[in-house]
Design a binder for these strands. Structure first.
Lengths: 148, 148
DNA sequence: TATTGTTATACTCTATAACTATA
DNA sequence: TATAGTTATAGAGTATAACAATA
């Protein structure tokens, strides 16, 4: 095994910096970090309950409520009672919400591309492929073997 | 530009999982996450002030104090007044501290290696090289261009 | 007076528990 | 009674400000 720092020790500061870089971009688009996470999650497909959405973005169901309130007020999402179970709220992104999400992501990725440009092209491609692979691991898969 | 999620969106959950995986390992070695960060920082070279150490590991100088207290009690570090400036405390890792740090890292990296084994060998090498490169960026370098 | 380390306080973020409404 | 959503409360983690010792 090659001598190196822990992955977490190397990646954590990088991720913190990337998040710091997202902050002003999202502010310019008028949304918070959690709002961006919600819009991104709804972009692919609508969600049938708020609890499912919270689960999907790794949040507690109670802490996304004010975010949903603001997104609804800003007409970036709709939040309607499910006719088949009026306890649940069906969450859908609006056209305006999609546009905000898409343009925010373009700005964010422009900055990320600037950083990735420091890597040789083939290394960059391998890196992105590896990140995709590793990010699809579940927490259980990552943690298993350390708790025995 | 290829269609992808944000780097932060992919890396953040991965890092959180890696940290979750470190927790039981560090607990088995009797140290906290911050203690591990301190020991790692002191492994290479002693530090002349607590403020410099805090800066190095991205912490506030006030929030590492209880960590230093515990490390000192456990004889994993020494914390002596600098004879040339008795306000400052020179921090040094002990042989016992080095041993704890080294064995904890071995366990942590054994788990990380298990995950990295999912990547093809050449991709794994490129990934690690890219992580090293990107993790050496300062926060300013990462953020610059997003605040204009 | 400025700086190092420390302590005490306040603030932010998050999780827990209690409540309303539907089922 | 059980579940979705909401609100209120409490807790953890962190930063801010005030303090003591030394320069």
């Amino acid at each position: 095994m090659t001598d190196r720092h822990d992955l977490a020790a190397m990646l954590h500061p990088l991720v913190q910096s990337l998040i710091a870089a997202e902050r002003p971009v999202l502010a310019a688009h008028g949304i918070s970090m959690w709002a961006y996470a919600v819009l991104t999650a709804l972009e692919d497909n609508a969600v049938r309950t708020q609890a499912a959405l919270a689960e999907a973005i790794g949040a507690d169901k109670t802490r996304i409520i004010s975010t949903l309130d603001r997104l609804q007020d800003a007409r970036l999402i709709t939040r309607d009672p499910d006719p088949r179970d009026r306890r649940a709220r069906v969450l859908t992104i609006t056209a305006q919400g999609s546009e905000v999400c898409r343009s925010a992501r373009a700005d964010i990725q422009a900055n990320e591309d600037r950083l990735l440009a420091r890597l040789p092209a083939s290394e960059r491609e391998s890196f992105l492929r590896a990140v995709r692979t590793l990010s699809q691991l579940t927490r259980e898969e990552v943690v298993s073997g350390t708790e025995a």
